[in-house]
Simulated assay, not measured.
Amino acid sequence: MNLDFQGPILRDAMGLKLYLITDCYCIFMGLLAIIGNSVILYLFFTKRLDSRRNLRIILYMTVTDIVFAVAIMPEICYFVYYWDTTFVDYNPQVIAFIDWPLPMFLKISSVLNAGAAAERILALYFPLIYRKIDHVHCSNILMVVCVFIGLIDTVFCIFSFRFEQRINCSSLGCFVHDAFRTYWGSSNMTCGIIIIVMSLFVFFKVQKLSRESGWMGATPAERKKNMVASQKFRQANRTTCGILLSSLFCLTIPSLLVSLVETITGFSIFEKFGAFYVASLLSSGSMNCLIFLILNGSVKSKIDTKTLSDAAVTTVVSSRPFNSSKQTTFVDLA
């Protein structure tokens, strides 16, 4: 990915307007991410959502999206304030100071999405193992790994930063060395491929389970218990699948395509559209919170704190009526 970010000094008005459109879009999606994720954070804070089991990953995603949106807002405001109809010439010292959140949180978001997909694969394919593991401990380890990898990207970015004038380019990619762009694009491409493959396994299993009808028990008490477990199982699947789809279309696939296009053709998305990765990451954070709130809107008022504290119900029911020997495991994951 040896790219040339040195564009012409003067650029057509439409090209410069694309920068402004991208920056305004980032401001809108950033505010939406802050507001929407703050609502989810409030639900965790008031115990309406329980962060002691698999929802700990959702909590970390929420906090990450809020922190990134707040941390990147000065950069976007700086781009908008100093935008010009003739050409843009941003100060490299300022860019170095305010653009550090991008490489760090881009990698944190990617690894968290991979962790969410891995958690769902474990629940769908290996439910007995899933219910034995300590979800909080695993989520904490995952977050530590995310921060560590994000710090590696940030340190590498800082050391590869070039304090040189870059006319008509409003992206971090314009100011860093080729070696970092190569590493950044390759690592993002690798993460994207891994997330896509893991997501396909999740979607395939969820679709397979949705086509299977199960016998819900012989007694009213057993049927009620199995219905509650299966409802929470489906709810957890819908939530994770929704977030994975949002991340795929808003972040993973665009990042993968950018890396592939730049590697094959040398065409610079950064030079054409400006803060592309920032827009993608903010879009992912905004869509994640909206999907989570929409999918859980009908059950938020019914969440009982005491029930959530005891949420470890696992019920095995038959996936065929009456005499079937095939088993489907429903795990209380909500």
Rank of each mutant, 00 (worst) to 15 (best):
L16E: 03
K300Q: 14
T154K: 07
F322Y: 05
F105S: 09
S230H: 14
M73V: 06
I158M: 13
F249N: 10
Y78D: 05
L200H: 02
K47V: 04
F163E: 00
V331R: 09
G297N: 00
F161Q: 07
D178N: 10
D304C: 13
G15D: 11
D99C: 05
F175W: 04
V136G: 13
F204I: 00
I303P: 10
P321G: 08
T22W: 01
H135S: 03
S213G: 07
K225A: 14
T219C: 04
S246N: 09
S187T: 02
D310G: 15
F126W: 15
W215T: 14
C289K: 01
A117S: 10
L31T: 12
S268Q: 04
V39A: 11
I27G: 07
V144G: 12
L200S: 09
I167H: 08
G150E: 05
G173F: 03
F161I: 08
N288M: 09
P254W: 03
S186Y: 06
R181M: 04
I193R: 00
G115C: 11
L260D: 03
A123C: 09
L16R: 01
V145R: 05
Q231I: 06
T329Y: 14
C77S: 04
R320I: 04
V316K: 10
A279V: 07
A96M: 08
V197Y: 01
V70F: 13
F233T: 03
H177C: 11
L260M: 03
M104H: 04
I58D: 14
V316S: 13
Q6I: 07
A118P: 00
S213A: 13
F28K: 09
R162D: 10
L32C: 12
L43P: 02
N140H: 09
T314G: 12
D178P: 04
I76C: 01
C24N: 15
F148K: 05
F204P: 14
S160F: 00
I76S: 01
W184I: 01
C77V: 06
F148H: 08
V94R: 03
T314F: 14
L295Q: 10
V317N: 13
I58H: 08
N2L: 03
T307C: 13
A312K: 13
A69E: 11
M227A: 14
F203T: 06
L16A: 00
T182W: 03
I167R: 08
T328G: 12
P321N: 12
N140Q: 07
F163L: 04
D23T: 00
F5E: 09
W100K: 09
P92E: 00
G30Y: 10
G115V: 06
T219M: 03
I27C: 10
N323V: 07
F233P: 00
I133R: 14
S139H: 11
P103Q: 05
L142S: 03
M143Q: 15
T239F: 07
A118G: 07
R181D: 07
F180W: 05
H137Q: 12
S280Y: 08
D178A: 10
